[in-house]
Amino acid sequence: MKFITPRKNAVAAVESLRLGSISEIASNSAKIYRFNKEPIIVVHTETGQFKAFSARCTHLGCVVQYTTEGIPRFKCNCHQSEFDLNGNNIAGPAPLPLPPLRVTLQDSSIVVSKV
């Protein structure tokens, strides 16, 4: 059994990461980045806030997308789970909210860190 059990990841996880310039994400849009090998979604809201969450749907792990059809929200196309811009569940079978990340803006750059 040990032979077929995957080895532990040898790469240490980072606590925070500088993603790029705030100009990369237009208002009312989102972009997906990689943080500690996991996809995260960073949204630039209509009100000018930057928010970041794990992009993995808490149902079965598909990568969510940001949609502005109707109210702006995150949507998973696999089983139609939906989350509001605070990551809370608003529709579908996902059992938990999207895990949030802390966003800070430093010298016009977006920096995300673990909460």
């Binding site: 997906i32 079965l60 990568v63 969510v64 196309n77 696999c78 139609q80 579908g92």
Partner: peptide, 24 residues
């Protein structure tokens, strides 16, 4: 592309659809 969102209308092969739909 592991960083892309799941495409709209994603479905498995027809013989896994009963499980897929049940999960929905």
């Amino acid at each position: 592309d592991p960083l892309a969102s799941a495409p709209v209308g994603i479905k498995p092969e027809w013989y896994f659809l009963p499980l897929f739909q049940s999960l929905k």
